[in-house]
Amino acid sequence: MSRAPAATRAPAAGRAPSIWRRNLATWVTLVLLVLLTLALAYLPLGRLNLPVALVIAAAKAALVAVVFMELRTGRPLFRLVAGAALFWIAIMFVLAFADIAMRAG
């Protein structure tokens, strides 16, 4: 393992600022993204409204996963689990839509 598990790391006195920094910055970004997606929802983009909203949602979810859920610093195995979930959800949607989007008439 490349990094000692959290519980064995010696608690460092000055770590509070770095914890605040990254999580607060993430929270601010998330709130801004909420406001952005809210504003864009009222902009008539035609068929792009849905993809734009979903991309912003994906970005927010990624931020929560990577920073709050510590996916970036945790074991690679956890990233694999998260990736597997996403992959199988994609399979479900792609193959199901292969039916519904391709029906005759």
């Binding site: 608690p11 770590r15 914890i19 999580n23 920073v67 510590e70």
Partner: peptide, 11 residues
């Protein structure tokens, strides 16, 4: 997230 990470750092 703060609670968990602060807990890790024994804060």
């Amino acid at each position: 997230a703060m609670a968990a990470q602060a807990g890790d750092a024994r804060l």
